[in-house]
Structures are given as structure tokens and as C-alpha cells.
Amino acid sequence: MSKKVLLLANLGSPDSFAVKDVRKYLREFLMDGRVIDIPKVPRYLLVNGIIAPFRAPRSAKKYKSIWTQEGSPLIVLSEKLRARVEEKTGLPAYLSMRYGNPTPQASLSEIQEYQPNAEEVVLFPLYPHYAMSSYETAVEYVKEVWEKGNYAFQLKIVDPYYNHPDYIQALSNSIKPFLREEFDHLLFSYHGVPERHILKGDITGNHCLKSTDCCRTPSPAHKFCYRHQVFETTRLVIEQLNLNDEEYSVSFQSRLGSDKWLGPATSDVLAQLPGKGVKKILVVTPAFVSDCLETIEEIGMEGRETFLEAGGEKFTAIPCLNLSDEWVEAIGKMV
């Protein structure tokens, strides 16, 4: 029996595309105070009285459009990744989701039962960048479960790896084959967050969003700054790919609500680029390591439609790292 065990953590997915399951999932997801960071009572009223009831039927249709015979793409890919990492590292590997199943409680209890010699569980969040609504909530939730559970093993957490050489190499090499085809532009579409999340994470209190070049000016705030980290990932990948400034840009997707979010919005960019002469576009989504609703449906379907209707001619959504050998090897090195 191994003394070290790996635990991969991802966002999660509804148990099915039935409206009731999607509604349940949305309620759990949106009631997280790190996702909608307003006081609990108004958050409860907003989520349960407005968002979940009206959004669930629409979201259910979207989930249905991407569901496979095996189930949710995110869950299926994450489970296959777990198996590949276990095979590659020779260490027992488990999987948990921040929302939905399998829960951290179930996964940690399973480790306790089937890995009695485990002394250390290494938590590997499947989020390269630090964000309050992704990396932070997943890590803090697992820590909370672990602290309350009186488990025999210690918990070690892998830091965000947005600039880790092996992650950058795997991401860059996943893009390279698509650059061999004719293209006009490479768009890096990252998951969006409200600007207030960036400000809340600024441990200096006076750096983030205070100037146009704050993300390029060294600061302790960058340790928790999602905006800096996605720009840094982009910069490092562009260096690997040897592209110039005119050949790529950065945008942010998946906006929710009316507050000010990081911009520009991916949907706006895709609608505008054809008018600027961009007819053939490549879109990569580095905030996600496994293809899911936001990459398959939001980018691959909705984004494609937006771009083509605006006059674009060719739209290519580059798959996430998913199960690539280099990605599996990178995880093995980082843990």
C-alpha cells in the first residue's frame, strides 16, 4: 500500500441533463459564497427565487447537447485522467468534484478505507490559475472536509501552476498542430470573473486594477491574481509558439449577472473580429483542462455561430489538454 495518494479535484457537473438535476447542481454551485459573494440571505433569494428556476431549463438543454453515452464530458474526462495519472505515477489516484459527485467527503472516506497506509494525500486542483470561484473554493472545501473528518493522513495542496514549465509546454504543444493550418488569429478565451473578485484577492490593497500595466508590474498580489496569471500563461505560450502581437488576443467568457467582469467578453470579440479582417480563427480555452459545457457548447457551438454569423469563414475550437500524454506527465511531475 502506498504512503502517498493523489486526489484530483474539478468543478463538477449535474448527475444528468434532467431539469431537476441541473437545478440542484445550479443551487449548490451558485450558493457558494465564493461564486456569488453577497450576503447569504440575499444570495439565497437570488439563487433559489430567480436564477435556478429560470436558468435550469435553458442550462438543461445545453447539457443535453453535449452529453455523451458515457455521461457528462467533464466527469468522464476527469475520471479517465485520474486513471491515466494513476497508471503513469504508480500512485493511487482518486477524484472529487467541488459540486455534485463524487464529493470530497466520499473520496476522502474512500481513501481512508482502501488506503490504510496513506500518510499524505496530495490535492491537485484541475485549475491552473488562482481564482476565488474555482481554485480557492475547491481547495478550501476539501480542506474543510479533511479537518472535520479526523482522517489519519495529512493533506498537501499543489499550488496554481499557470506558469509551470511542464504545463506551459503541454499547453503549447496542444496548440501547435492547429497553427500548421491557415489561420488569421488565435484567441485565448479564459473563464471570466467579476472585477471585485480581483480586488478582494489583492493582498496589498492597492495594486490590482490600479493601472493599465498592473499585471506586468511585479507585486505580491500576483500570487492570488487571476488576471495576472492568465496573462502570464498567455505570454509564456506565445513565446513557445513564436507568435507576434497581432496574431493573438485574450478575452473572457461565461459572464453571469450585471456586475463589471474582466473584459473584453469573448462573445463580443468573436462578433467584432470578422469586421476587422479575421476570417479564420483558432480559439483555445486554457482556464479549463478538461472539455466541458463552457468549452464544447459555449465556445464550440455558440461561439462558432457568433463568429460565422458576423462574417467569419472558419472557426476552430482547440480541445483542452484532456488526456494528452504531456499533460498526464506534467501532473506526475507536479505532484
Rank of each mutant, 00 (worst) to 15 (best):
E144G: 09
A118I: 09
S174E: 13
P125S: 11
E181G: 12
Q169G: 03
M132H: 02
E147T: 06
A138S: 15
P177N: 08
F124L: 12
E182C: 00
N173G: 05
L179C: 11
E120A: 01
E147A: 14
E120M: 07
S172R: 02
E113M: 09
F124V: 15
L186H: 05
L187I: 06
A152W: 04
L108G: 14
Y151C: 00
V139S: 12
M132R: 09
V121D: 04
V122H: 08
E140I: 10
L126I: 09
N173Y: 02
P116Q: 01
E181D: 14
V145Q: 03
E182Y: 04
L126C: 10
E181P: 02
Y114R: 15
L186D: 10
W146C: 12
F124T: 07
F153L: 03
H164C: 05
E110V: 01
E136F: 01
A106N: 06
A106E: 13
P160Y: 10
E147V: 02
E120S: 04
A138P: 00
L186K: 09
A118C: 15
Y141L: 14
L123H: 04
Q115R: 08
N117V: 00
D159H: 12
Y127D: 06
S172E: 05
P128Q: 08
A152Q: 14
M132G: 01
L179F: 06
P160C: 13
F124G: 09
M132E: 08
S109F: 00
Y167I: 10
E119M: 03
V145I: 15
W146L: 10
V122P: 10
H129Q: 14
Q112P: 00
E110Q: 13
E110L: 12
P104M: 11
F178A: 03
N163C: 11
N150D: 14
E181N: 12
S134P: 04
A152M: 10
K148L: 13
V145Y: 04
L179W: 07
F183K: 08
P125T: 07
Y130D: 06
I157N: 09
V122K: 07
E182M: 00
Y162P: 03
P104V: 08
Y135T: 07
I157Y: 03
Q154I: 00
V142I: 14
V158L: 06
Y135Q: 09
Y135L: 11
S134E: 07
L187Q: 07
A170T: 04
N163R: 12
P104D: 12
P165L: 10
Q169K: 13
Y167G: 03
Q105K: 13
F153D: 00
F124K: 03
Q105G: 12
V142E: 06
Y167C: 08
A138L: 11
Q112R: 12
K148R: 13
S172I: 06
Q105D: 15
P116T: 04
K176R: 15
D166G: 01
T137E: 07
Y151R: 01
H185R: 06
S107L: 07
H185M: 04
V121G: 03
K143T: 09
E119R: 06
A118N: 06
H164R: 13
E182A: 11
Y141M: 10
V121R: 00
A170K: 02
S134R: 02
P165F: 07
A131L: 05
E182P: 00
P104E: 12
S107G: 11
I168V: 15
S133V: 05
D166F: 07
Q169S: 13
I111N: 10
P125D: 10
I168A: 04
K176Y: 11
L187S: 04
P116F: 04
E119F: 01
V142R: 02
N163A: 15
Y130F: 15
E140W: 02
